[in-house]
Design a protein around this nucleic acid. Structure first.
Lengths: 159, 159
DNA sequence: CTCACAAATTGAATATTATTCTAAATTTTC
DNA sequence: GAAAATTTAGAATAATATTCAATTTGTGAG
């Protein structure tokens, strides 16, 4: 009975998703031309996809270096949070430099993706923000030397 | 002398980036209102930010579950690629289900983020695609149980 | 200080687009 | 197979994007 329980997408919806995932700023008119429907009908579908939380956000991918966020790191961390309690994760998620927080299977409880200006500011972030979060038992930080690919493009099924 | 060597962004540029990162579909008119400039001037700046590769892509974040991509995994993998040679990374990047490929410091050479429908299709992907890539010595797969936060929002400096 | 050049900005005009609404068509349900 | 609900098309209007010439602003040289 949750909000995703009965999402049914037809071929046209998937085509719209594919086009919008590629270019969020595509005009509704172009979208309509591509899927060969009237603009009004397409707009209606887009609105519904937004309401059904299929379309989550229109965002712009920025060059991290251009805004002085050159360092990328993954931090695997163990927490003493009991099962069903995710205070640690919630607190981590509040940190702006933290892009992702995943609860993972295996020894380490969480995998966190962080972006900062440089290693010094990462250290600062860990000292100032991470250290204030209770229940963190240990952290293991992996610095990214080079990013070869970074996209959030999903593989959208044919039908 | 590379393409990013002399990117200088003023307060207005940063404000534009902040707004567009939040909502890629913001109209140029609204953008102009927010930063209190003429629409034409703002458009000019956006075009330049695109040319300078500060704005990389306008994309739409989709609900992975809605398009049957419920499984998220991170794969740490070792490769026998020599230094300066990144065939493995390039091949990995070609796989559509692979969202990210990072060259990392430490024992494991690469960290890869993958999305598939379920664990069965992940296995299939590894058997069919990963196994065809030469030089991969070993893989260590971490399954994500739950994602608490997933954003690519960068922290944009004040000035 | 002022000139001259380049870059950025404005404002107006036009083309394109978004959005709304009603009627028609299609699909679903009983 | 008919009624109800949903979806779509088409037309009309409001809003927006985009272009361009003219003005302003910023920068460095003399």
């Amino acid at each position: 009975m949750n909000s995703e329980s009965e999402i049914v997408l037809d071929k046209t919806d998937l085509a719209i998703l594919r086009l919008m995932q590629e270019n969020a700023r595509i005009s509704n008119a172009d979208l309509a031309r591509e899927v060969e429907m009237a603009p009004s009908a397409v707009l209606e579908r887009v609105r519904k996809l937004e309401q059904k939380n299929v379309l989550l956000q229109y965002t712009t991918r920025l060059n991290p270096a251009a805004v002085n966020q050159k360092l990328l790191a993954f931090i695997a961390l163990r927490s003493s949070d009991g099962m069903g309690c995710n205070t640690t994760a919630t607190e981590l998620a509040k940190i702006p430099q933290v892009q992702e927080v995943h609860h993972i299977a295996g020894d380490d409880c969480y995998l966190v993706k962080v972006r900062t200006a440089d290693s010094a500011s990462l250290m600062e972030l860990m000292r100032n923000s991470f250290s204030k979060i209770p229940n963190i038992l240990s952290t293991r930080t992996t610095i990214v030397l080079e990013t070869v690919k970074e996209a959030q493009q999903l593989v959208i099924p044919e039908k």
